[in-house]
Simulated scan of single mutants.
Amino acid sequence: MDDPYAQSAEYIDLLIADAWGLFAPGLSEALHELRGETGVTVDLGAGTGRGVAVICASLPDGSPVLAVEPSPALRAVLLARAHEDERLSSRVTVSSADALGVPLPDRVRALVAMNMIGHLSPDDRHELWAGVVPRLVRGGRVVVNLAPPTRPVEVPRTRMASRSVGSLTYEGWASARAVGERQIRWRMTYLTRSPEGSPVSEVAVDYDWWVMDEAELREELAEHGLTMRQIGHPDAGLYVATRAQD
């Protein structure tokens, strides 16, 4: 397969650490409400496994987790994280399928989709919700986040994250331009800098992203019988949705 993260994977886990510091409390809060339910928690687009670690810490009852990550490069980090942590290794099953191709469990405790919903077109999202909602246990929920921008606008080049390891500094820069009524094209640039600040290496990756705002997501989920509310820190853009009748 064509892995969009093949060139940038070495930077991803390092540079999303601060973002997960923002996401983790809201995700944990959403999952703590499910302690009395059984079923599998599905993490779509699990990436390097930071979300998987939060999920397992939030549901410390041995309940299973299905971590879905189609990128071989990111999946390698995910598998290493799950294998090395005994709190994860007995609970986490890693799938190489994509969001629409993975066979879903009959009973889904929660579906977590962090930093990935923009990879799916509106038609793809409707297919996903239609497949997930009938499998949600009573009180089960969907947890997603929306990252800016929520409209197809130009985003000037901005440094998104920076981390130092040893004597080197790793930076992630992002810019975007509109490529359709609901899409933008991100240009992600990853830099490694020497102690003096000069570039040691540089990688640039482009990918398309579907955008939407809170109202659009709320309406879309309502069409599938889900009621949505914001959770966690306001800057996290995190939402939890449950069946309207639950």
Rank of each mutant, 00 (worst) to 15 (best):
G118P: 00
G118L: 00
H119N: 11
H119E: 14
L120Y: 04
L120K: 00
L120N: 02
S121V: 00
S121D: 08
S121M: 01
S121R: 03
P122V: 04
P122E: 05
D123A: 14
D123W: 10
D123M: 04
D124M: 08
R125P: 01
R125T: 05
H126L: 09
E127R: 13
E127N: 07
L128P: 00
W129G: 01
A130Q: 10
V133M: 02
V133T: 11
P134L: 05
R135F: 09
L136Y: 04
V137Y: 07
V137L: 06
R138M: 07
G139A: 01
G139Q: 01
G140F: 04
V143D: 05
V144G: 02
N145D: 15
N145A: 05
L146Q: 02
L146K: 00
L146G: 00
A147P: 02
P148Y: 08
P148C: 04
P148W: 09
P148D: 13
P149M: 04
T150V: 12
T150K: 05
T150W: 11
R151S: 14
P152T: 03
P152N: 02
P152D: 06
V153M: 05
E154N: 05
E154Y: 10
E154M: 06
E154S: 11
V155L: 10
P156T: 09
P156R: 10
P156K: 08
R157T: 11
T158K: 12
T158P: 02
R159H: 10
M160I: 11
M160G: 10
A161V: 01
A161E: 12
S162A: 15
R163F: 12
R163L: 10
R163I: 10
S164R: 15
S164A: 15
V165A: 14
V165I: 12
V165K: 13
G166I: 03
G166E: 07
S167R: 12
L168A: 12
L168P: 00
T169P: 00
Y170I: 01
Y170H: 11
Y170G: 00
E171K: 01
G172S: 11
G172K: 03
W173T: 02
W173Y: 09
A174G: 06
S175L: 05
A176W: 06
A176T: 03
R177L: 09
V179T: 13
V179M: 06
G180A: 09
E181D: 13
E181V: 04
E181H: 09
E181P: 03
R182Q: 14
R182L: 08
R182I: 03
Q183E: 15
Q183G: 07
I184G: 00
W186S: 03
W186I: 03
R187Q: 15
T189A: 07
Y190F: 15
L191H: 12
L191V: 08
R193N: 09
R193D: 11
R193T: 14
S194D: 15
S194A: 15
P195D: 11
P195F: 11
P195S: 09
E196G: 10
G197S: 09
G197C: 09
G197Y: 13
